Amino acid sequence: MDAPFDLPRTLGVLQRGYADPAIRVDSGSFAGGPGGTPGAGAWLALRQYDTVGRHVGAVALRFDQLDTSRVRVHAISDSGEALGSALDRVPTLLGAEDDWSEVEFLLDALGDRISTTLAQVRRRHPGVRLPATGGLFDQLVTATLEQKVTHREARHGWRHLLRRHGEQAPTASTLRTPDWLRLPLTGGQLKRVPSWEWHQMWVQPPMSRTILRLAERASSVHRLGASTPVETSSVGELSEQLTAISGIGPWTTAEALQRSHGSADLPAVGDYHLAHFVGEALTGKRTDDAGMLDLLQPFRPHRQRVIRLLKLSGFRSERFGPRLAPEDHRAR
């Protein structure tokens, strides 16, 4: 890359909690900003599928940011086909195809107070990109685990699912992968998880049933993901197709496609906090999903990029009432 790149802020959105078994980002000692983030790194475990949905192998990737715009990548795989596929995908995964020039021009052209502030945030963080892993199936599974539960429950479910049933990532004598690094489960592996273990992992029955429906359609989901380019209109059409699966709604597809395809214009409608956050950040008042979409309308087709800038701005919404503390029914 010839432009500034911020590895931890780009890949950090893929990590589910501090102990995610599939990816962990080390932000290094530098705080980021225009200088990029030299010294940052990350481990990431992925499965690779071909265009017809066939599993071709597993890959462990190690990223190290060398200077403001260069990232060194080491790849370890159990298959030559998977290795080649993963290396071909690395630039897209890192957001090399995520072009912010149009939204930067739009913010300058609008010229109002909010747009000017967002433009200033972008200038402070020019190295932030929207990553695109290509792993649509994996992202749908993790997003499903996050439906209508707290972050604590969702991260517990994902962490224990991979620790109990996930395979270790490939390793090599020249570069040892961490013992904790685990691969996402295939559709076949998910179908073999005992029903009572979903309960132990804090995964509610509606979510486990949805995951099993995804597992039954794994090959189709892989094919759809592989055939859809990282491009706004195609990704929007894919989102609509995915909602035909019972239990998969607009929130789940948005959360998944933001990470698998770097979707720049799919806000997560139905999120417990997002509409409130966007409303307060842009107007000082809370709003609902319809109000959030109205506020973001001038920024189409870059609504997710604008949400990313709002989160980078340091704005914090007001907190009303105590944090939700769900009751633990796993022992029942």
Results as ranks from 00 to 15, higher is better:
S101V: 06
E102M: 06
E102V: 02
E102Q: 09
V103S: 07
V103G: 03
E104H: 01
E104A: 14
E104W: 00
E104M: 03
E104G: 08
F105Q: 03
F105T: 08
F105K: 11
L106N: 04
D108Q: 15
A109C: 03
L110V: 10
G111L: 09
G111V: 11
G111Q: 12
R113D: 09
R113C: 04
R113S: 12
R113E: 09
R113L: 08
R113A: 15
I114Y: 01
S115W: 10
S115M: 10
S115V: 05
T116V: 07
T117I: 10
L118F: 04
L118Y: 07
A119M: 06
Q120E: 13
Q120H: 01
Q120R: 11
V121T: 11
V121D: 11
V121C: 04
V121L: 04
V121I: 13
V121G: 01
R122V: 03
R122H: 06
R122W: 06
R122L: 15
R123K: 12
R123P: 02
R123Q: 14
R123F: 07
R124S: 11
H125Y: 14
H125M: 05
H125S: 05
H125W: 14
H125N: 10
P126Q: 02
P126T: 07
P126N: 09
G127S: 04
G127E: 08
V128D: 01
V128A: 01
R129S: 03
R129A: 09
L130Q: 12
L130T: 09
L130V: 12
A132F: 10
A132S: 08
A132D: 00
T133S: 13
T133R: 00
T133F: 05
G134E: 13
G134N: 07
G134Q: 09
G135P: 02
L136E: 02
F137M: 03
F137N: 06
D138S: 15
D138H: 14
V141Y: 11
V141E: 07
V141M: 02
V141L: 04
T142D: 02
T142K: 08
T142V: 13
T142P: 00
T142H: 02
T144R: 00
T144C: 03
E146G: 11
E146I: 12
Q147W: 00
Q147S: 12
Q147D: 04
K148W: 10
K148G: 03
V149F: 01
T150Y: 00
T150N: 05
R152Y: 00
R152Q: 07
E153Y: 10
E153S: 13
E153C: 12
A154I: 13
W158M: 01
W158F: 02
W158T: 01
R159S: 15
R159Y: 15
R159C: 11
H160P: 03
H160Q: 15
L161Q: 07
L161N: 04
L161E: 08
L161R: 00
L161V: 05
L162T: 06
L162A: 09
R163K: 14
R164S: 14
H165L: 07
H165R: 00
H165T: 03
G166Y: 13
E167V: 12
E167A: 15
E167W: 05
E167Q: 12
Q168K: 13
Q168Y: 00
A169I: 12
P170W: 10
P170A: 10
P170F: 07
P170V: 09
T171Y: 06
T171G: 08
A172T: 02
A172Y: 11
S173N: 05
S173A: 15
T174L: 07
R176G: 14
R176V: 15
T177Q: 01
P178E: 15
D179R: 00
